Computed example of a mutant assay.
Amino acid sequence: MSLDTVVEDIREEAHARAEDIRDEGESRAEEIESAAEADADEILAEAEREVEREVEQLREQRLSSAKLEAKQKRLEARRDVLTDVRESVESELTDLEGDAREELTQILIEAASAEFDEGNDVSVYGRADDQELIESLVEDYDGYEFAGEYDCLGGVVVESEQSRVRVNNTFDSVLEDVWEDNLQEISNRLFEQ
């Protein structure tokens, strides 16, 4: 065997070994690339799932927010309607005239008089426009007199220094009591669903 043959054998063996190393490297590179692609696919799939979760959460938040806003607007509209109804009732009470106004005022004075002892000096206050009416009504009660103006829709405020009692029997106070006691029923009738 000649030196050339040995060199040639070594060369062939080196080439074969290099070829094996290259094949092994390519195989290893393909494995790494395949694993990296699988990891990338998993990362991408997880990212997509996360984005879908965030989109769903955002959608739920917006839907919830829209529902809340709609509910608030409905409540606001209901409050506005109730305010309009209350103002309409107040206006009708202010505009009440004649026998109806006299009868209501008489009932309120009579109800207030039950709180005072006979012989007390009793001051009766009322709306300026009702002065004549109140003066004529209190003539039937001993010790009662119209004492001045009270800012109200109608009715009377009656008080006595001797008994230290003050009775607010104005249309305003009666309306407030009736309104509060019946607000749920009023609301149900106005906004039947």
Rank of each mutant, 00 (worst) to 15 (best):
T5L: 13
R164A: 14
D9F: 14
S113C: 07
L44P: 00
S88Q: 06
G154D: 02
D121A: 09
R53Q: 14
A14I: 14
S136F: 02
A147Q: 03
E92P: 00
S160K: 05
V157A: 04
E42P: 00
E69V: 06
V156C: 07
S88V: 01
V178A: 10
K67W: 05
E31S: 08
G126E: 02
L104V: 09
Q61H: 10
E192M: 06
D121N: 12
R17P: 00
E12P: 00
S160H: 05
V157E: 07
V81R: 13
R59T: 11
E180Q: 14
D95K: 13
F146D: 00
Y150Q: 09
A77Y: 09
L3N: 11
E149A: 10
S187I: 00
E132G: 08
V156P: 01
G119K: 05
I10C: 11
G119E: 04
E48M: 06
V174H: 05
E31R: 12
R101S: 01
A29G: 10
E46G: 02
A45F: 07
I186T: 10
L137M: 09
A16M: 07
R11C: 06
V89T: 06
G98C: 03
V89Q: 02
R166Y: 03
D4A: 11
I107Q: 14
E176C: 03
A14P: 01
L63F: 09
